[in-house]
Design a protein around this nucleic acid. Sequence first.
DNA 1: ATCCATCAGTTGAACCGTTGCACTTTTGCA
DNA 2: TGCAAAAGTGCAACGGTTCAACTGATGGAT
Lengths: 196, 196
Amino acid sequence: MTTPAPGRRERKKAATRQAIADAALELFLAHGYEKVGIRDVAEAADVSTTTLFKHFSGKEALVFDREEDREAQLVAAVRDRRPGQGILDALREHVRAGWTATSGHPRAAEFFALIDATPALRDHGERMWTRHTAALGAAIAAEAGAPPGDLSCLALARFVLDIPALTRGRPDLGAAIDEIFTVLEHGWHPPERTRS
Amino acid sequence: MTTPAPGRRERKKAATRQAIADAALELFLAHGYEKVGIRDVAEAADVSTTTLFKHFSGKEALVFDREEDREAQLVAAVRDRRPGQGILDALREHVRAGWTATSGHPRAAEFFALIDATPALRDHGERMWTRHTAALGAAIAAEAGAPPGDLSCLALARFVLDIPALTRGRPDLGAAIDEIFTVLEHGWHPPERTRS
DNA sequence: ATCCATCAGTTGAACCGTTGCACTTTTGCA
DNA sequence: TGCAAAAGTGCAACGGTTCAACTGATGGAT
């Protein structure tokens, strides 16, 4: 009977949002991202296109819905690392654990296949990653005792966030991640030339 | 009377292309990128929008016109470096020299201001950079004697290409570039904590 | 209990980048 | 000279996105 902490209004709003996201995912998976128009999604969710855009900033946002707390998790991975553990180690652990988010997605397999098969979505995904550079860089700087905005910390953040793009499609993901972290830890060196 | 090496056809084609690019730049600088429509540009250049799109792949391409040989220059910077010079040093030199292209742009100052002021253009610019990752990575691998597609070489390429995004707006660009290359050379280390 | 400001949602049209289609003109070459 | 390819045209459409004016439910204040 009584309304819980979130008022009735916000519950309804959340429900519409969810309905839209669900309809979108279903249609995209069924017919492909490009074949489905905004108007189709809106109609399937039984809302107007304007309402859809009040909930989502664009077509791509319909797909990258649950990606919101990636940033918080990244920051937490650095800040709440085990005592004595280095920042780089903590990051590597987090990366190797699969970045922790969107695993547990309802239909994870099809979902990633969809993104992988759609250039527009791959692009957008990459941009979403690098958008966390500032936050992660700040967290690293804070933990390393560097002034906020320290360039090398910012660079490290960016480099770490490049990892998904760099390792996409590699057979052994763990090894690939390790290889990149080796560069980040000790710098880049030309692999020793094995003479014939 | 006789047609020189490039035939009359291609000269005319190049001329229209140039007319379009010029008209676009003028309008963009005068009124701002977003305020100017494709149809405006086409009309100013006295061509149809269809023709415009036969010459340029999209609105942003009107701005990033002369950016074509960036990739070749990057590869050359690595491949044709002074004998005995390390790959990283060659890259740093090239970066510090301003990446060599689009310097010499007619109205370089306003041009960069325009890009800087327009999020859509900043985004597109970044994507153009990272699109050279594969080529630069391959060049590095070739020079380092690594197998093509070597991950650490690819990562280095990507990291170097991140530099413009990372250093944007820094007061001392040279110092910023050096700081990043220090990370690339020796790895990232937390700056020594200066206790109060 | 009532009034009112707020905000989700609607409707319909427009805007803008982009593409397709059918067509004319120019150019290069055999 | 004739002809096929290429450059360009005009127009209409498509799809994502936004705008403006409106409706109606909600919830806090009186």
